[in-house]
Simulated scan of single mutants.
Amino acid sequence: MIDLDVIGIRLAAPEDVPVLLLRESGGTRLLPIWISSVDAAAIAIVLDDSEQFHRPMTHDLLANVLDEVSNGKPGTVNITEMRDGVYFATISAGSFVFDARPSDAIAAALRLEWSIECPEQLMDQVGVEVDRSETDEVEKFREFLDTVTPDDFENENP
């Protein structure tokens, strides 16, 4: 099994379907999973460390139930396969294994800080090879864009 890190959610354009990007830990391959906007929002709340709602949302409830089922012990999300363009996943919690959509499973796993993994065969089949330095540079540039203001570009010598 390959351990996966959640890199983030990307949109090529506002009208595009969100893509959840998972990278093999310590590797250079990405596993892209197209997800709904609702699932992207549920994942983004955790990734962005956004303010939590006063009442539990659906993925918070799922995480709470999984935590109880596993008796507080860490579980695992396994992206098991892709069949006819659709990804499949399981959630292992205690002695239970649940069939799940990858986006739901990952939204819960992020809330619980559980590991996410996939079989080597799946990564070989659908993984996308990227140059690690290129993705690091893109991430640094995105961080810069998140912090820059128009005042940063004012000319000191008019």
Rank of each mutant, 00 (worst) to 15 (best):
W114T: 07
L110Q: 01
D124F: 11
G94E: 12
V65S: 13
F53W: 11
I106F: 10
K140C: 08
N71D: 14
V126D: 03
I2R: 12
V38D: 11
S115V: 15
L61Y: 03
S95T: 02
S92Q: 15
L20I: 08
L112G: 00
P150G: 05
P32C: 07
L30M: 12
R132V: 15
V19H: 01
G75E: 14
F144Y: 14
R55M: 00
S95F: 02
E137H: 12
L110E: 02
S103W: 07
C118K: 01
V46T: 13
Q52H: 02
G72V: 00
D136V: 06
P102C: 11
A93C: 06
G85V: 03
W114V: 08
T90K: 09
E117I: 11
L30D: 09
L122T: 03
S36K: 13
A93P: 01
E24M: 01
D67K: 07
P158R: 12
D99F: 00
P119F: 03
R23W: 05
L21G: 08
D60W: 12
D49N: 05
D146W: 01
D49P: 00
N64T: 02
N71W: 11
Q121D: 15
R23V: 01
I91A: 03
S37F: 08
N157D: 14
D3G: 13
A42C: 07
L4V: 11
L47Y: 00
D151R: 09
T76G: 09
T149M: 02
E51Q: 14
E143R: 06
V128L: 14
S92K: 14
T28A: 15
A42E: 06
L30Q: 07
F153S: 09
P14L: 04
E139I: 11
F153H: 10
N157E: 13
I45W: 07
R29Y: 00
V148F: 05
I35A: 03
T149S: 13
E139M: 10
I79Q: 05
G8C: 06
S50F: 13
I35C: 06
E143G: 09
T28S: 15
D99S: 08
D48G: 10
